[in-house]
Design a protein around this nucleic acid. Structure first.
Lengths: 216, 216, 216, 216
DNA sequence: CCCTAAGCGAGACGGTACGTCCCGTCTTGCG
DNA sequence: CGCAAGACGGGACGTACCGTCTCGCTTAGGG
């Protein structure tokens, strides 16, 4: 759940309203869709959330951080990976699932804007990774393990070297899957439909089962 | 060369200074690096370019358009693709080449910012595609043709269906290559080094030469 | 002693801390000196008095009232009028005494600020008159009586008309003395020293003993 | 005429609107009357003057300075001193004239507030003296000269000592007249009517013609 | 001796004004 | 007409206080 960091002493003083938190994040998302990043103002969010502007600043340092948290919620939804029978089918499913997320205007606008803002701000980048991107990586891990169980992929070699190699592969797959879908959807402005998903899954599966990355 | 559209009547009055154009675009790039997108102001550009703010507005409608033009220049550099002997080696070379471009702070910041801005603006998105992204696609075409000459990839089937199939594959490869590199560099914040490029190239080559996208 | 009105039911519950009252008024005075009226905030007073902001509001309705009470204390000091032997000497003494009070930064700032605030608020003006200004008038009465005893001034004529006439004169003297000193010290920004006091006393004594106000 | 200092380079750029200046000062005065010092905001002034808030800040650093200039205008009115035939009558006239000024709510509120603010700010105090208070002193000089011509007052002794003595007397009278009237009107909250003016004039004339300040 | 009503600290809350910065437009005067 | 300079109306920013409101914890009487 996305919300401002709660490392406050607690005990003294009136507690913060949890309802306000929810209202603010929700208002941020809807305002983001209607106004876009640059026209999104703290005032707009505040008035939509029926909350004073100061309350926003009490919880978040600025627009970027607020939007990151607001957008992160959207990526919190079900991350289950139903077993579709084969590695290729699993990949297709993930791709379409992710694409559906990027279809939603709020996700699209928010994600890109926040990424752009993060270009110059490593702290923000880290926040994005932990709040949004990182948790998607679990999917890759699960799908890979399942493919190994099925015998589609070779099991990890034992030992430290094997673990390192596995991690490298997971990172690679993750960048390829997420990056390709984002690029297709947001840069090329072409639909990520079933056809594309099938082509993409075939490409990746072929690469993985055929040669696979060579050991460094 | 990026510059403001020149569909002006021409003839009467003092002509616009070409030197100003150059100074402005260059100032925009340097300011973008130092300040980042959001802190980049027209005033800042104007004072760096030793130019009045009015002069900027006479040539570009706003910040986004100015930055797109300024950044586009950077992608105009050499797009040659030396023959490295194999498909995998060619891909590696392209990846590292592109990564080097993204290392430059101006490219990184500018590209992401402009993409984010474009999320809500199809006209801007088109401008980006034609000015920046599109011309990269030529590389993919050339590399693929070369691999077909070498026999690494099957030649395109004849007829319309074959051409469509070829176009689909080119688009796919392009999204995969560009997207993966961008994601690795700008989201995961991990280096796009020779090791990663080799792994990536192996993955893609395996997918292409092994199964390849099935015909829809 | 200045303090918040105590018309509270009394009996049940924890009684208010008298120490807090003292700390608050003292903190108000010191803060007033260091910060001036406009920069003086309830928060500043609270933190100096080691007291919660709420405690202030429980006792005073706002800044003006708090400052009036705090400043009034300063005018509570010794109001004795030693017999200096002549009307002129008595006036000199009063003038220098008052000037010394206005030298103190807390009195100066506080008095003017409170007067300004009172310009639009008759209730506050009344409070000031009764808490601060009014009690100074006793000095004039005493000095005048003494001068009449000495024979420097004519005794009050008997009857109502005489009393009214006496009251008018006292009011006049009071405004002249207080007003002149305040103007010299706070507007002209010139020192109220012994020379000035002597000149002033000479002027007033001359006016009083010579012609004196004619009967209306 | 009160207005922001005009020590700007001049020549380049669009000149400031003089109409705006007038509108702002006038709006300030009316807002001051209706709202009082503390409720007077820059926004209120701006909207009354049909001017952007930034325009205010371009010309004055803050509220205090703006109000000083606005109030100063009111003291710019006719400062003539008609010859009323005697020193006492002249003084009466000046007193009533000044009192009439202080009756106007704008003058009253503005003057006191500005004086209070100036208590802690010598620069502001100087500005007040030069813009408001100082020019009133000319009246005293003229009245005194006229009384000397009439023979009511002794002529100034020649030489430096005489000039110094004259200056001291003028300063004294000025503080006494202005201070007494202000105190009567704004602190005692009593009317400065013809009766009071006559009493006051009698007191001062008596002091001047009778003993007068002794030589230090 | 405990009960209870108030005091008290802390701090969140809805507001409002501040003074600054930038936007995009407009008016100047000089080439 | 281009151009530099800079005023203009407008709007968002982030900060500081305001006066009110909840909290949980003292802390005195009064039963």
């Amino acid at each position: 759940m996305a919300s401002p960091p709660e490392n406050r002493p607690r005990g003294a003083g009136r507690p913060r309203s949890a309802a306000a938190d929810r209202a603010i994040l929700s208002a941020t998302r809807s305002a983001l869709v209607e106004l876009g990043w640059s026209a999104l103002t703290m005032s707009a969010v505040a008035s939509r959330a029926q909350v004073a502007r100061t309350t926003l600043y009490r919880r978040w340092p600025g627009k970027s951080e607020l939007v990151v948290d607001a957008v992160a919620d959207l990526f919190d939804e079900r991350l289950e990976l139903p077993d579709r029978g084969s590695l290729a089918a699993d990949i297709e499913w993930v791709v379409l699932r992710f694409a559906a997320l990027l279809e939603q205007p709020e996700t699209k606008t928010g994600l890109m804007a926040v990424l752009a803002e993060a270009t110059r701000d490593e702290a923000l980048r880290a926040r994005i990774r932990s709040a949004i991107v990182g948790r998607q990586k679990a999917l890759v891990l699960r799908g890979r393990a399942r493919a190994q169980d099925r015998g589609e992929l070779a099991p990890d070699p034992p030992g430290d070297a094997g673990a390192r190699q596995a991690a490298r592969t997971v990172d690679l797959i993750f960048d390829v899957v997420a990056g390709s879908v984002i690029h297709r959807a947001l840069v090329s402005s072409e639909p990520v439909d079933e056809d594309w998903a099938r082509d993409f899954a075939a490409l990746v599966t072929g690469g993985l089962t055929g040669a696979g990355p060579r050991t460094g």
